[in-house]
Design a protein around this nucleic acid. Structure first.
Ligand SMILES: [Zn+2]
Ligand SMILES: [Zn+2]
Ligand SMILES: [Zn+2]
Ligand SMILES: [Zn+2]
Lengths: 137, 137
DNA sequence: TCAATAAATGTTATATTATAACATTACATT
DNA sequence: AATGTAATGTTATAATATAACATTTATTGA
């Protein structure tokens, strides 16, 4: 994908991406810094934040503003809207496509005369797995 | 409102609330700290963050996660869902009620088996006023 | 090819945002 | 007055993020 776009997925960027994609939970920048140290001994905060900026730019990850953390994008092959379901119990984050919601949103923007460049929905609650577990036990 | 709920809108809390409500832009915690100093000479970060926590708890303000900033609630008399339209040009933030969007969202949650405790939508773009201005000039 | 240019990274320092921990004060209840 | 609770004061530090400038690496195009 990066090849096609003519951008460089350098080792640092790839390592950060893999660390984020390996986790189903949102990951903090400084955790990434700690975890990348074995491979990138010279890594500093700027190293991470630059990689994060690049990956966000390319739509490969998202920033979860309510958590100050980052989550891998599950459908990075196309530009898309964002709905994150954040579980308070297991901390996992599920990303979903949401055509219906986004269409309703677009109408709202029209009414408001607002031109949206990005829209992000972050919901906090309890995921299916966790509520199943609770009702069983 | 606070009386009815049996919670205290102390001077510090009220001053923070007024500072936030006076602005149509999202306000940063440390700006609040600077601006409350004349009235509350002893104010420290904890002073502000405690007031912010209280005001959020009471639904009087919202945190805009994508900005790490805070915005007054325009309909604080009831619990409600959140849609913030954040203008990149003038930095003003408009809050809108969004029954349609939120209903579509609820369906999405049902499908996902997710129990939402809070849902926040933050859209970045250009507000009506600013795009009018641009098209005129 | 090889200098010129642009992109990425290294490095140091600092800015910004937020919380922890414990002490003190204010005020209501018994 | 003794007790308990909520709010605030105070000091320190943790956590998140960027600025600024130097160096290295990749790309371009004469
Ligand atoms: Zn995505
Ligand atoms: Zn869960
Ligand atoms: Zn509101
Ligand atoms: Zn505007």
């Amino acid at each position: 994908m990066c090849l096609v776009r003519g951008v460089q997925l350098t080792p640092i960027r790839q390592q950060v991406l893999v660390l984020i994609w390996d986790s189903h939970k949102a990951v903090k920048a400084y955790d990434l810094l700690d975890r990348i140290k074995p491979q990138q001994n010279a890594a500093k905060p700027a190293t991470i934040y630059r990689a994060l900026d690049f990956l966000i730019e390319q739509g490969l990850i998202h920033r979860a503003g309510s958590l100050n953390a980052f989550i891998g994008c599950s459908c990075s092959d196309h530009q898309h809207e964002l709905l994150l379901l954040i579980c308070k119990h297991c901390n996992e984050v599920e990303e979903r496509a949401t055509p219906d919601v986004m269409q309703a949103l677009s109408q709202e923007f029209n009414q408001a005369g607002f031109t949206a460049h990005s829209k992000a929905i972050e919901a906090h609650g309890i995921c299916g797995k966790c509520s199943d577990f609770h009702s069983i036990s």
